[in-house]
C-alpha cells in the first residue's frame, strides 16, 4: 500500500514542489513575446524617442525637445490637426458602414444556415485571399472614369448624349467617399467573423422564451439578440476602426487630392519631407487620438456592458 503511494508520488510531483504554472506558460508564449517585444515594443519606443528629437539636414539631432509637438498645437500645425480629425471621421463612417453591412451577413450565417456553415464562412473569406493592394486596385477599376460603373451606365444609356448624364461620373473616384467605400469593403471580413461568433454563441432557448413571453420578432431582436451579440459587435468596431485611421495605401490609390489621410502625411514626413522626428510626433499624436476616441466609445457603451462583453 505504502509502496504504491510512494511510487505514485514519484510519478506525479506534489503540488508544493511543482514549478508554478505561470513559468510553464511563459515558455509557451516566449516566441510570441519575443516577436511582440522585437517587432512592436522596440519600434514603438524608437518612434516615441525620435519624436522628441529634431532633424538637421540628413542627420537626426539627438537633443530632447518638445518642438515637434509644439508645432502640432500652433497655428502652423492646423492642417495636421484637421487631417487627424478627418481621418478619424473617415474611419468612423467606414466602420459604421462595415458593421451595418456585416451584421446582417453574420446574422444570416448564424440563424438561417443550418448545414455547411463552414462553406459559407469560406465563401465569405474568398475575396480576402487576394492581397489588400489588389482589392483596393479592384475598387479603382470599379469606380474609375472608364470603370465598371461608368461603362455599365454608358451601356444602358444613362451616360451619353441622350442620357441623364453627359459625361462619365467623376465623383465616384478620388475623394473621401471613394476611400470610405473601399475601406468598408476591404475590412468586411474582420467584422463579419467576430459578430458571427457572438451570435452563434447565443443560447436559442432565450429566444424561444422571449417569444413565449409575447415579444414580437423585432422586439426580441432588440431585447435579446442584439445585447447578447454586443461583445462581437464591439470587437468588430475596434478591429476595423483602429487600423483604418492610419491607413495609407487606400487614400494613396483612390483618395486623390482631397482624400488624403493622416497616414499619407506621416509617410511623407519619413520619405519625401525628410523629417522623421515630425513624422514620429505625428504618429504618436495619432495613436493618442485613436486611444482617446476608443476610450470615449467604450465609456459611452458603459462599464457594465463592458464587463459582460468580456473583451
Amino acid at each position: 500500500m505504502t509502496a504504491i503511494s510512494e511510487a505514485a508520488s514519484d510519478q506525479y510531483d506534489q503540488p508544493a514542489t511543482r514549478r508554478p504554472e505561470w513559468v510553464d506558460g511563459l515558455w509557451l508564449i516566449a516566441p510570441t513575446l519575443a516577436i511582440v517585444v522585437g517587432m512592436m515594443l522596440v519600434p514603438l519606443l524608437a518612434i516615441i524617442i525620435v519624436s522628441f528629437w529634431t532633424q538637421t539636414g540628413f542627420d537626426l539631432e539627438a537633443t530632447w525637445t518638445l518642438e515637434n509637438y509644439a508645432l502640432l498645437f500652433q497655428p502652423e500645425g492646423k492642417l495636421y490637426r484637421i487631417l487627424i480629425v478627418k481621418s478619424l471621421w473617415v474611419s468612423l463612417v467606414a466602420t459604421t458602414a462595415v458593421v451595418v453591412l456585416a451584421y446582417p451577413m453574420a446574422y444570416f450565417m448564424a440563424f438561417r444556415i443550418q448545414r455547411g456553415k463552414l462553406i459559407w464562412i469560406i465563401l465569405l473569406t474568398v475575396p480576402f485571399w487576394t492581397s489588400y493592394l489588389l482589392r483596393v486596385f479592384a475598387w479603382k477599376v470599379i469606380l474609375g472614369f472608364n470603370g465598371v460603373i461608368n461603362s455599365g451606365l454608358k451601356a444602358v444609356g444613362i451616360i451619353g448624349p441622350d442620357g441623364l448624364f453627359e459625361k462619365p461620373l467623376e465623383f465616384l473616384l478620388y475623394n473621401p467617399a471613394s476611400v470610405t467605400i473601399t475601406l468598408a469593403h476591404a475590412w468586411a471580413a474582420y467584422a463579419v467573423l467576430p459578430i458571427y461568433v457572438s451570435l452563434e454563441k447565443i443560447d436559442r432557448s432565450y429566444l424561444e422564451a422571449a417569444t413565449d413571453l409575447g415579444d414580437s420578432k423585432w422586439k426580441r431582436f432588440w431585447r435579446v439578440t442584439f445585447p447578447l451579440s454586443l461583445p462581437g459587435t464591439i470587437a468588430a468596431i475596434l478591429l476595423v476602426f483602429i487600423p483604418t485611421v492610419g491607413d495609407y495605401i487606400t487614400p494613396t490609390l483612390v483618395g486623390g487630392p482631397s482624400g488624403i489621410m493622416i497616414g499619407n502625411s506621416i509617410a511623407n514626413q519619413f520619405i519625401k519631407s525628410n523629417n522623421a522626428p515630425l513624422g514620429a510626433a505625428l504618429s504618436c499624436v495619432m495613436m493618442l487620438a485613436i486611444t482617446v476616441a476608443v476610450c470615449l466609445f467604450l465609456m459611452a457603451i458603459g462599464k457594465k456592458r463592458l464587463k459582460g462583453a468580456d473583451i
Binding site: 487631417l83 478627418k86 519631407s273
Partner: peptide, 8 residues
C-alpha cells in the same frame, strides 16, 4: 508641397 497636399 507636403503642406499643400495635406491641407484640407
Amino acid at each position: 508641397f507636403e503642406e499643400v497636399k495635406a491641407g484640407a
